[in-house]
Nucleic acid binder design. Structure first.
Lengths: 199, 199
DNA sequence: CTTAGATTTAACCAGATGGTTAAACTTTTT
DNA sequence: AAAAAGTTTAACCATCTGGTTAAATCTAAG
């Protein structure tokens, strides 16, 4: 654990690591303290409870689950190009935060944290749908169900990171080849999207 | 809890419910005993430990994560039709077992159960790839990366069930409309697959 | 320098947890 | 019917867990 950062920050970094690795139920306050290199009582001094600490970590990480769509979708460009940019951005983001999807999905699926769903900055569906309708009217894209399209797009981006251990086994891959696969996947998904969208 | 079934079966049913609902770390042996309507000591009498009980449940459920692909892929039909059958079968299966994906993915991603990956009956990738090559040679399908295709196919089938709470919020849906969306999704995915595969 | 406020420490706490034990009870076998 | 085997129970156990407490230590302010 590095010098020069506050105890609060040490705790947040350690908590993030442990919560992501072990999940909420599997995480121990003593483990977080050990990783942070501090006395366990400080966790309560600074954050009051395990719940609140988790919430703080979740709040910090959640902003990354849905990348800022404004920059992409407010541009005056073709819908399909917006989707390309989205794919590039999202897969890059997931490559840097490969454990994020499972962390978020576990949280929103857990029964005592389902209200955390309200914390998700979900503008994606609206932005995509509006942008899609614009291009549909101009005959630039095929008619399809925007909701289903968004689900598919997200599924194709996110799923491999969730299923990484399975895919490593399935394709006799290691971390290096998996990452290359994810790199290649950007182009692959663009191809699919083009085939699906072009009228 | 029903009459006429053995204590062992009672425990397995209850354990399945609780492990799926709360995850391994979040599950308590007393909870499982309560759901089963038995004394907690019986869990150890019949299954020796929480670990072993979990493994038994996992073994039972895992067979369903990858549906039997033999029936579908051994048929002498077009590759694309095989994929259609796969989609129908898999989405139906997931609609009946909506919590299964998260259960499995959590298990294979957890650090002390990663060896469970070996229990997955993974013939899917090989079957799909072989079948795809056959049709490729006959010019029935477009050239693409089979691994990426499989990942996408599975992602589009599985992801919505993992992200259900998010999607409910995102699309202002409830359980009924979500299920209808999953029903409709079969046709939608077939459309995508057709567009992607046709030469 | 002293005081006040902030931070940290080590010990402690009540309840929870997976698991154990021995006795009681039930079913099967002889 | 009695004995043996199998099942169940209630109590118990050592350890773990999130959290608390009061004293010690550190830092900032006057």
């Amino acid at each position: 654990m590095e010098e020069g950062i506050s105890t609060e920050e040490k705790i947040l970094k350690a908590a993030e690591e442990v919560f992501i690795r072990d999940g909420y139920d599997g995480s121990r306050m003593q483990d977080i303290a050990d990783v942070a290199g501090i006395n366990k009582a400080l966790l309560h001094y600074y954050f009051r409870s395990k719940d609140k600490l988790f919430e703080k970590v979740f709040d910090a990480k959640i902003q990354g689950f849905f990348p800022q769509v404004d920059e992409v979708f407010n541009q005056d460009i073709l819908f399909i190009d917006k989707i390309y940019f989205f794919i590039e951005g999202y897969i890059e983001l997931l490559r840097k935060n490969p454990y994020l999807p499972l962390f978020v999905l576990n949280t929103v699926n857990s029964k005592d944290k389902s209200e955390f769903i309200k914390k998700l900055p979900i503008q994606l569906s609206r932005k995509v749908a509006e942008s899609y309708q614009t291009d549909l009217k101009k005959g630039r894209v095929r008619m399809l169900n925007p909701a289903q399209f968004i689900i598919s797009l997200m599924g194709m981006c996110i799923f491999p990171f969730l299923a990484k251990p399975i895919l490593l086994d399935m394709f006799q891959a290691d971390n290096v080849t998996f990452d290359a696969l994810m790199q290649d996947r950007i182009q692959e998904l663009k191809t699919y999207i083009k085939l699906i969208l072009q009228p």
